[in-house]
Amino acid sequence: MRRLVELPLSKSFKMAFQSIRVRFFRSMVTTVSLVLAVSFFTFIQASNDTAEGLLSSNDQTVLLELVKAGYDITPESGSIESSAKQRWILFLSLLVCVVGIINAQLMSVTERFREIGTLKCLGALDRFIVRLFLIEAAMQGITGGLVGAFLGSCVALGSCLATFGGKAFFFIPWGQLLVTIAVATGTGTLLSLLGVLYPAFIAARMQPVEAMRVDQ
């Protein structure tokens, strides 16, 4: 009697991927909110990176242009600081994004109550359900994070070139930019996982008898 039910990881990935593919539109709505938040995050960071690069040129005219463009340059450290207001807006945008994800994922749990109940009737354990939701969220997070980071850095580079002209191209710190993209993608994935925790918990606690319900 002590034999256990199992769900191999490869199969979990396949099921999660299938679920995203078939419910593409719904997943996209969740992912788009992530893309927007991450691209905003990347835009702010990447703009600071490029400005930092320009600052290192030690060119007085560039310095003036930077100040004109609205960057806070602290005279003592001689570097670009992100202002408190900027950080606050950034934090709010990420918070709004997480709340949006929680909302969308809760909707998706409600929509799938019968599917979850059925899986449990077929022998799925609570942790299988949590795992499926987490993998789905991680896939959405990585995709949304990457797209957002790419979009945000493109816009930041574009606006930098537009403001400071072609010469700015030589001062772009590519290494720093890559780090920013990686951090942004990671943040996106983390936000997506954070947003799915509570909905996944609700889904896992669902009783198998829910699958029997005929109404709704």
Binding site: M1, R2, R3, L4, V5, K120, C121, L122, G123, A124, L125, D126, P208
Partner: peptide
């Protein structure tokens, strides 16, 4: 919970 899942399965 595990044994119940096994039973259902």
């Amino acid at each position: 919970a595990y044994e119940l899942a096994w039973l259902r399965c």
